[in-house]
Amino acid sequence: MRKNGVDMDLQLAGRRAFISGSTRGIGYAIAAELADEGADVVVNGRDEAGVRAALAGLGERGSGPGHRGIVGDLGDAADAARVLAELDAMGEVDILVNNVGVFELSEFAEVDDARWLRTFEVNVMSGVRLARHLLPGMLDRGWGRIVGVGSESGVNVPVDMVPYGVTKAAMIALGNGLAKHTRGTGVTVNTVLGGPCDSDGVRASVAAVAAAHGVSESAMRASIIGQNRTSLLGRFIEPAEIARLVAYLASPLASATNGAAVRADGGVLTAML
Rank of each mutant, 00 (worst) to 15 (best):
R244N: 11
H213G: 03
M220V: 03
T191Q: 08
A173H: 14
G177Y: 05
D140I: 02
G195N: 07
L174G: 09
S153C: 15
V162Y: 08
G148F: 06
L249G: 01
R129K: 08
T185P: 04
R132K: 15
S205K: 04
V166S: 12
R235N: 08
M220P: 01
K168L: 11
R145N: 06
E241D: 13
L135F: 01
L232G: 06
G214T: 14
L249M: 00
R244F: 10
P163W: 12
A243Y: 06
R203C: 09
V189N: 05
E241W: 04
G177H: 12
D140K: 10
G184R: 13
E217A: 15
M125Y: 09
H213E: 14
E241Y: 03
E238N: 03
E241H: 07
P136F: 11
V149A: 08
V189R: 05
A240V: 10
V189M: 07
V209L: 12
A170S: 13
V215W: 00
N156T: 12
A240I: 07
V128L: 14
R141S: 14
L233S: 02
F236E: 01
P158Q: 12
S231K: 03
V159G: 01
A211V: 12
T185C: 06
L232A: 15
Y248E: 01
G194R: 14
G154R: 08
R235T: 09
L233F: 14
D140F: 00
A169Q: 02
E238V: 03
V192C: 08
T182M: 10
A169I: 03
A173N: 13
L174E: 06
G127H: 10
A247V: 10
A240C: 02
A173L: 09
G194L: 15
P136E: 09
V209K: 10
L135C: 05
L130W: 01
F236G: 05
G186H: 03
L134N: 06
R221Y: 02
S205L: 11
G186T: 05
A169G: 15
A222P: 01
E238D: 13
